[in-house]
């Protein structure tokens, strides 16, 4: 039986505070989200924070209206928000939506014996969705705690959760996930029929 890891996406002030809707959404999710991370740490599961860093030469990066590049490496806005970060956690830099795209994440998870990932963070319909799909294609058992994913627009989150549950992940609340772990000691892999 492989290990379980929690992946967080983009818990950085440049992302979280980009719009008032996102700030409010993360504030609403924060207590449960922090509690879930703390409980997973207590149970010995690894937390991997995917830190979005924009590269200056990436033509597809969205810049501020004045041309400023947000999420620059080493900047305050790109740092993982302190509340969510524990010294035992791992931070992995990414430069695109999926946390696996040209990053060391897959190698690190493999080295750590991880076969199940719980994908969290924001935004649900972009980075959570693509990271979960990428994890699925790489053979991971993918779960998404529905109360630990955030979108500025709740409809985007709900649509993304429906997509995730339909294609590649088991979607459940953080309480349900913890209960499943209590009961079975592991998280069952979803049977996915869409791929040959």
């Amino acid at each position: 039986m492989g290990k379980i890891a929690v992946l967080t996406n983009d818990l950085q002030s440049d992302v979280v505070d980009k719009t008032p809707e996102r700030t409010a959404a993360i504030a609403e999710a924060r207590p449960r989200f922090l509690g879930f991370l703390a409980e997973m740490r207590r149970r010995g599961h690894g937390i991997y924070h995917l830190q979005l860093v924009n590269l200056p030469d990436d033509p597809n990066v969205e810049r501020e209206p004045d041309g400023t590049l947000p999420l620059q490496r080493g900047s305050r806005g790109a740092a993982i928000i302190e509340d969510f970060l524990d010294p035992s956690d791992t931070v992995v830099e990414k430069n695109k939506d999926s946390g696996f795209y040209e990053t060391e994440l897959h190698d690190r998870l493999q080295n750590d014996g991880v076969d199940t990932v719980l994908v969290t963070g924001l935004q649900t319909q972009i980075c959570v969705q693509t990271t979960a799909a990428d994890a699925f294609f790489r053979g991971y058992n993918v779960w998404v705690p529905s109360d630990c994913v955030v979108s500025g627009n709740p409809e985007d989150r709900d649509r993304a959760l429906e997509w995730l549950g339909g294609y590649c992940a088991t979607v459940a609340s953080s309480d349900e996930i913890l209960a499943a772990l209590d009961q079975h000691g592991e998280l069952a892999r979803k049977v996915v029929k869409i791929l040959p």
Binding site: N60, K96, D97, F100, Y101, E102, T130, D134, F137
Partner: peptide, 10 residues
Amino acid sequence: IREGLGFEQR
């Protein structure tokens, strides 16, 4: 590939 969506190898 443009956005790093995770489908580019599949």
